[in-house]
């Protein structure tokens, strides 16, 4: 297009502004977690670690961190398994009710979380499994499996379609071909879907809040603190949460982008 320098600078400036808007809350949350003032504003007060100390010494936070970790690791495992099975079925087979089958797995994220939360709460109560860590894990797996499915399916579509047949041809049964060829080929996608589903689960608060009962996760603790008053503890916990989920997301993306060099 025409070489219009002022326009170009204007657009890049605008882009920078939009990115500032998107990352400002993350940035300020981290800055204020080290700020001594009770009500965070500028000019900043002095540097302090007291909010981190408060959080560190809070047994409830530790308990919640444990719960969160359990939930997100279990969720990531189940969701990745579900996602892999669906992706593989979609890749390999065609059958009449496939759209229904795929819809069953892919639709949950299109339903608002608050609705899923209510539905899960009522359904788990009906089944008699409400208020347990397991209920959160189940709900999160349903919610995050589509992400895993999408990532792994994309990877499978990059595979030479003869690769699996080649394994059979060399004497691998369906199961060994799956283990020796499909899984190793999809490994980057499996790792990154594990990280992403763990990240989503780690941050999810609506469903957790509804179905968790007494087993609070970190986001539920945050929600409760925030509902009470302004407490810079939230910034400390929040920075920790950001750190965890950003690490997971970045690992996920890097693993997907760099081709795996060698299989041991």
């Amino acid at each position: 297009m025409s070489d219009n320098r002022p326009l170009r600078w204007f657009l890049y400036g605008y882009l920078a502004l939009v990115f500032t808007f998107i990352f400002a809350p993350i940035l300020f949350s981290v800055i204020f977690s080290f700020n001594s003032d009770r009500f965070p504003t500028i000019p900043l007060g002095s540097f302090t670690l007291k909010w981190y100390q408060t959080v560190w010494n809070d047994p409830d936070v530790w308990e919640a961190a444990r719960t969160s970790l359990t939930v997100s690791l279990s969720t990531a495992t189940i969701a990745t398994l579900l996602g892999f099975a669906t992706a593989y079925t979609d890749y390999r087979y065609s059958f009449r009710l496939k759209p229904v089958y795929l819809g069953l797995v892919l639709l949950p994220p299109t339903i608002p979380l608050i609705i899923m939360a209510l539905a899960m709460l009522a359904w788990f109560a009906k089944l008699g499994i409400s208020g347990q860590v397991m209920s959160i894990i189940i709900a999160h797996s349903v919610l995050t499996a589509p992400f895993a499915m999408a990532i792994i399916r994309l990877r499978l579509s990059q595979m030479d379609p003869s690769l699996e047949s080649a394994a059979w041809n060399l004497g691998a049964s369906q199961w060994s071909a799956l283990r020796r060829v499909i899984v190793p080929f999809c490994l980057p996608a499996i790792i990154s879907s594990f990280c992403l589903t763990a990240a989503v689960s780690f941050d999810e608060f609506a469903i957790s809040w509804f179905v968790s009962g007494l087993n609070k996760t970190i986001p539920v603790i945050i929600l409760e603190i925030v509902t009470g008053n302004i407490d810079p503890q939230v910034n400390a916990i929040g920075s920790f949460v950001f750190l965890v989920s950003m690490t997971l997301v970045i690992i996920a993306q890097v693993v997907l982008m760099t081709r795996r060099k060698k299989e041991v």
Binding site: P25, F28, P219, V234, V241
Partner: peptide, 13 residues
Amino acid sequence: FTSYLVRIFSWYV
């Protein structure tokens, strides 16, 4: 993929 809740709280401040 990062906590929406914390970001909203940050906006609050």
